[in-house]
Amino acid sequence: MTTGRDQAAASESRSRPVRGTALVPHARLPGVQHDRHVLTSTVDVFGTAHWLLAERAPERGGELPPFDALVVSVHRGGAVERTELSGLRARWPHLDRLPDGGFVVAASRARRYEDGDQVQVFDALGRETRSFSVGDAIEHLLVDATGTVWAGHFDENPAGIRRWSATGQIRWATDHAPGAGWIMDCYALNVSGPVTWACPYTDFPLLEIRPDRPDEPVKVRTNTVRGARAVAVHGGRAAFYGGYGEERDRLAFGELTETSVEPTDTGLLTLPDGALPGRRRVVARGSRIYVQAEPFTAWGVFDLGG
């Protein structure tokens, strides 16, 4: 049984600086926006950070009428852009940006939405242009450099990982991935250029997904790292972030062979000041793992590529 004293000690330990690999500051929400509620935040395929802000936090239960929200985008050079989105319907949304400047907003749960109403696509002026559904239980929703949408589902939807056009046509699914085992829950998903990486429950293989390669759309590598919530890959190396229990802040490294990931080293990934992040959001893009700790106003980055 965990006591209040145990919880306090764990909290103190988590906030205490520790030795490890420190995140590098990447982007910060401008202070003038801190009076709004952060519904969600992400880093897109080009490295721009986005915050979806509302006047108030959503309430649990009851109906959620369409509402307006603000996207604040901080580009890698520090320039700030604001886009008003009209008529959002997602209570617990996912957000990403399209290459044409528009946005995709998706409800993580599809049960309260009519068919075709779960994912909203907005143009660069914040106007909804279309909507469609990708299925219940979204764990990850990421847009790649070509504008296609990747959805990774958690265990209440056996669809696994699927790729969609921005108009709602399915382009690829993990039922086309022989040898990957049962993909029950998409723990880690990395979407950037022509290759997508994933590390799903239950066997946690590292999947190298190239849908446009008809002879081998998925290469499956066995992997001994369990429970990672993000994976980065660069130059024949992989880094896995997160895990179960005491390994939730783990940063594990491995070398890629043709059939496996061979472990090489393990450490911790910390905030820039050396503290452990506690509650966090994580986004993986190519060689980079972005981490955002509560209160979710700043992103840090770890780059496996140096």
Rank of each mutant, 00 (worst) to 15 (best):
D273E: 13
S15K: 14
E128G: 09
D249S: 08
I161T: 03
V231E: 02
P263H: 12
R248C: 08
D203K: 08
A124I: 09
L268D: 02
A238E: 02
F296P: 01
R210F: 01
L141Y: 02
V43P: 08
E128D: 02
Q118L: 08
A27G: 07
G193H: 13
E246K: 04
V18T: 15
E139C: 11
R82I: 03
L206T: 10
I183H: 09
G168M: 14
G77N: 12
M184P: 00
P58L: 05
D123Q: 01
V134T: 14
V24Y: 03
V18G: 06
Q292Y: 00
R130N: 10
D123E: 01
D6P: 12
G286Q: 11
D212Y: 03
D117E: 15
Y201Q: 09
G61L: 03
F122P: 05
C186Q: 09
A298F: 05
A107P: 02
V143R: 05
L256E: 04
V72W: 03
R14Q: 11
Y241K: 00
G47K: 08
L251V: 04
S13P: 02
G77I: 01
R237L: 10
G254D: 04
K219F: 08
F204C: 08
T2W: 03
G181M: 08
D155A: 10
A238T: 07
V195A: 14
F240G: 01
R28T: 15
V143Q: 08
A173V: 08
E114A: 12
H26T: 05
Y241D: 00
P277K: 03
Q118F: 08
S108V: 12
S260L: 02
R237E: 14
A49I: 00
V18N: 06
T2I: 13
A228Q: 09
R109Q: 13
E81N: 07
M1S: 11
W172F: 15
E55R: 13
D203P: 00
V191Y: 12
R127K: 07
R89C: 12
G242Q: 01
H37C: 12
G300T: 03
D35V: 14
G116Q: 05
V74C: 07
V104S: 03
F302H: 15
N157I: 07
A9P: 03
T21G: 11
T196N: 06
F67R: 12
R130Q: 11
E59S: 14
E63M: 05
H50Y: 01
L29A: 04
